[in-house]
Every structure is written in C-alpha cells, then in structure tokens.
C-alpha cells in the first residue's frame, strides 16, 4: 500500500460513497473534510476497510461547541484517523445540530472509540447512537451539564463541596 495525498483520499471516499462528503477545506493549516452525519457510520466502515485507505487507528475524537454559528448553533465532532500501514491521515468532521447532537457510534469499528465517545458525551454532550455503555467517564456519574459547552456555568457546590474561585 502506498501513502495517499489528501485529495486522493477524498476521491476514494467519494468513489464509494458519493453523497457522504459535503464539504472539503483543504487550504487551512490542517485540511479536513465534513461528512454528512447520517452517513458517518458507513464512511467510517469504508475508511477502515478499504485497503487503499487503511485507516486502522482512530487517533482522537474531539467535540467542539459552536453556539454562535451563522448556520445555526452547531456541535462539531472531529475524528482524526491515521493509518499505521500507509502512514497517512485524515481529519473528518461531523456537524450536528446543537439542540440534538446525535451521531452513529463507531466503537464497533475502532474499539478505542468506546472511551473517546464516552468522554465526548461527558464533556460536550454528544449522544453516540449504538454505544453500548454511554455513561460519564471523567466527571462524576451524577454531574450535571457538559463542561465544555460554551454556555456551561460551573456549579457553586457539588455534594456540599464548595467551588472556590481564586
């Protein structure tokens, strides 16, 4: 297998799933593509299984809250994929409506997504559909709210422990 450029990677995805890629930003510091939320599951499967792509390593899942987008409040889930065989990588974004951020879980495809999705759910509040155990991982189980939402207000106290602000 050989290392592919970002354009070739996108071409491979488009070849198999012509509808999936809705946006390509290739001129930034890091190029990325935006994938339709409904087709993310299939795209992920393709990314891992297609031998030309061979994205076997899911490096990171990040959730970013954009409450003041022109298109409407959004939450982006960013997947950084990597190939240990072909030594290339890609950044894939899924844009979700902020009011009801739901996206297919990829924990069956990359096992590491299990904890990453739980973390994103915990901190940003994205619901990953099909995750077998979507519970908080870093915050306490009975924590209220998702701390990395931009409108999050830290509680004054938690179980009687006061929040000291220096």
């Amino acid at each position: 297998m050989a290392r592919l450029e970002i354009g070739q990677i996108i071409a491979v995805i488009k070849e198999k799933l012509p509808e999936a890629v809705v946006e390509e930003i290739l001129d930034g510091v890091d190029p990325f593509v935006v994938v339709k939320a409904e087709q993310w599951g299939e795209t992920a499967q393709l990314c891992r299984d297609d031998s030309r792509l061979g994205f076997d390593l899911l490096s990171c899942i990040s959730g970013v809250d954009y409450p003041e987008r022109e298109e409407g409040p959004e939450i982006e889930v960013i997947y950084h994929l990597d190939s240990t065989v072909n030594h290339h990588g890609i950044t894939i974004k899924v844009k979700l409506p902020r009011s009801d951020p739901r996206v297919a879980s990829v924990e069956e495809i990359w096992r590491t997504a299990d904890w990453h999705e739980r973390e994103t759910y915990d901190l940003v509040g994205v619901i990953f559909e099909g995750h077998h155990n979507l519970v908080r991982i870093l915050c306490a189980e009975d924590w209220v709210g998702h701390p990395l939402r931009k409108d999050y207000e830290p509680p004054d106290s938690f179980h009687g422990i006061k929040n000291v602000i220096y």
Binding site: S59, C60, V64, T112, W115
Partner: peptide
C-alpha cells in the same frame, strides 16, 4: 496529540488533548 482551534483571539477557542495513557 493536541487539537487546537483558534477563533482569532489570543485565547484558544478549544484545546483537546489526546492522552496516550487514556487510550
């Protein structure tokens, strides 16, 4: 890994760390 998003100010909009031990 560090995923850093900038909105043009001198404060990062979002910093996400990929911690190897976590995985």
């Amino acid at each position: 890994g560090f995923y850093v998003v900038s909105d043009g100010t001198n404060i990062p909009y979002r910093v996400k760390a990929r911690a190897p031990s976590f995985c």
